[in-house]
Design a protein around this nucleic acid. Sequence first.
DNA 1: CTGAAAGCGCTTACAG
DNA 2: CTGAAAGCGCTTACAG
Lengths: 329, 329
Amino acid sequence: MADIHEVAREAGVSVATVSRVLNNHSSVSAKTRKKVEEVIERLNYEPNMLGKSLRASRSHRLLVLIPDISNPFYAKVVSGIESVAKANHNNIMLCTTDSSTERELFYYDMVKKKLADGMITIDPSFEFYELLTTTNRYPVVICGEHVGNANAPCVSIDNTKAAYKAVKHLLTIGHRKIALVNSNIYTAGLRQQGYLRALEEHGIEVDSRWVVHADLGFERAQLDVRELLTMQERPTAIFAVSDTIALSILKVAKDLGLRVPEELAVVGFDNIDFAAVMNPTLTTVSQPMFDMGRHSGAMLLRRIADSEAVVNNISLDHDLIIRESTMKY
Amino acid sequence: MADIHEVAREAGVSVATVSRVLNNHSSVSAKTRKKVEEVIERLNYEPNMLGKSLRASRSHRLLVLIPDISNPFYAKVVSGIESVAKANHNNIMLCTTDSSTERELFYYDMVKKKLADGMITIDPSFEFYELLTTTNRYPVVICGEHVGNANAPCVSIDNTKAAYKAVKHLLTIGHRKIALVNSNIYTAGLRQQGYLRALEEHGIEVDSRWVVHADLGFERAQLDVRELLTMQERPTAIFAVSDTIALSILKVAKDLGLRVPEELAVVGFDNIDFAAVMNPTLTTVSQPMFDMGRHSGAMLLRRIADSEAVVNNISLDHDLIIRESTMKY
DNA sequence: CTGAAAGCGCTTACAG
DNA sequence: CTGAAAGCGCTTACAG
C-alpha cells in the first residue's frame, strides 16, 4: 500500500504538505490541496494510524465494554458516551464481553499497550471490578457501579437506596410476598441489600425460594422467571433488578394468564424506553442512562488529558417511576 | 508511564538490550536479563504496541467478526481460527457486529488503518459481503459463504446442495408439507434454493406461509417459530437453516405437546454439540466448523504474509446426519 | 503557503 | 554479549 512519501512524490510536494491536507490545515493552497487529494484518491492511500497515534501519543480511541449488545440500557449509556466522545473527536470501540473476565482483561491490555487511550467499563464482572479498584493505573472509568476505595472513578446512582425505595413502594401498597429477581452484575449485591433492608423494616422474613437469578437478555430471562411464577405458593409482587427481566416477567405472566397488577405487581430497574409503552406500563427505577454515559465519557477524557487529574466518583439521581404494573387495586 | 529508554537508563544498559530482553533473545546474559527484568517490574513498564507494530509493519492482530457471540456455531469456527492464529503468534480480536453493516465497516477501517493485519468475517451482512466481493483490497477472508467472483477468498460448504439433501431426506421419508425456517444471513438465499429445488423435483408447490424467518438466537427464535406451529394447517416437517432455530422448534413443539418425529419432523443445520444430546436428537447438516475456522485462519495469514498470494476459495465437505428427529415412523 | 528536520517508541543489522 | 544508529509512517515547530 502507498504511504505518505509515495503520495508526496507523486504529487510533487513534501510529506508535510500531504499531512496538512489530511488534517485539513487551512494554510494549504486550494490548488495544492486539490492535487494532493487527487493522488490520495488515485493511489487509494489510507493513513497508517500506527504512525499517527505513535507521533501523537494518542489514539483518540476509547474502549467501551458492555456485557451484552442487545440490552437497551447499555445502548442508552453508550449513546451518552458517544456524544461527548464525538464532540472531542474521539472514537468509540464497542467491546462486548459477555461478562467474561478473560475478555475484559484482553481489552484492558489494549489500553496498557496504547492501542486505546482509555476505557469505560459498564457493569464489569466481579473479578474485573476488583482488579480495577485495587491495582489500576490506567485511564479507566467504571460505569453503573460504585463502591468505596475505588482506584478508578465510578459513575452510578445509589443502587441500594433505589432498590430500597422500589421494595418499600411494594410494601406500602400492601404486598408482603415480595420476590427479588436478581442478576449476575456487580450492582446486584447492592440492590439485594436494599431489598433486604426494606423487608426487615417491616418485620418480614425473607423466603429464599423467592430470591432468584435471571439472565439480563429479554428472551432468556423468560425461561428463568417462569419457575417463580408457577410455584404453588407464588409471590404477589416482584422486584426485578433490570427492566429486561421485568418485561420478561410481564410476558410470562401474560402467557400464564396472571393479571398485572391485580394478581402480580412488578417493579423494574433502569427505565428503558419499552417500560413506558408496555401494556401494562412498568413501574421502575429510572436511571439517568444518557447522563451516566456523558459523565463517564467526560471523566475518562479528563483522566486521559491529565493522568494526575483528581476525578471524583459521581453519584447521580434516580427516580421511582410509578406506573400501571403496581397500581393499587 | 515509563518507556524503553527509561528502563534502559535505570538498568544501565542500552535500549537495544531492553528490547532483546522483551523479545526473549537468547543472546542476552542471564545477569543482564535479570537486572532488566527487575527494572521492568519496578517501573510497571508496558511495551507500547504502536511503536512495535509500526516498526514491524505488523500488528499480529486479526479481527474476527461474528454476528452474535452466543451461537455455538460461531464459537466453534472461532476456536478453529484461534488454533492457527496461536500457532503463528497472532492474536484474535473478536468483534460482535449484531449484523450491523455500520459496525462491520468500522472494523474494516481498522484493517485499512493498520490497527489489525486482516480480518475474517463470518456470516457477513449482505451489504458488507457485496462490498468485499467488489472493491476489497485488504487481507480479508469470508467464512461461511461463497459466491463466484469474490474479491476476497471464501471458505464454505456447498450450501445449496446441503439444503437440497436435507429436504430430499424429508421427502424420502414421506413428507409433503415441508416448511423452511430461514434466517437473515447471506447463505440463506442459497439454502432456500436447495429447498425449492427439492420440492420442485417432487412436483410440490411451495406454500408461502410455510417459508418464514427466525432469529438465530435460541430464545428469540422460539418466539419466531411459535406461529408456524400453531397455524391451523401446519407443516409435518421443518427444515431450519440453523441448529439454534431447530432446537428452538423442538422446544416449542414440546411446549405445544407435539411429538417429534411422529407429528413433526425437524432438520437443522450446522451440527452444533447440542444437536446430539437433545431429546430427541437432531437430524442436521454437519458443517466442519473447526476446519472452516482453521482454513480461514490459514488463508488469511497467507494473504497477510504475501499480498500477491493466490488464495483460492475452499469448499469443504458436509454431511447429513440422520438422528431421531426425522426417524421414520 | 511550503519544506527540511526532529521525534513519537520500538527493533534489528552491523560493528565490536 | 552489547551498543550506536537507522528507520517504521506519521506530525509539527521552525524557518523562509
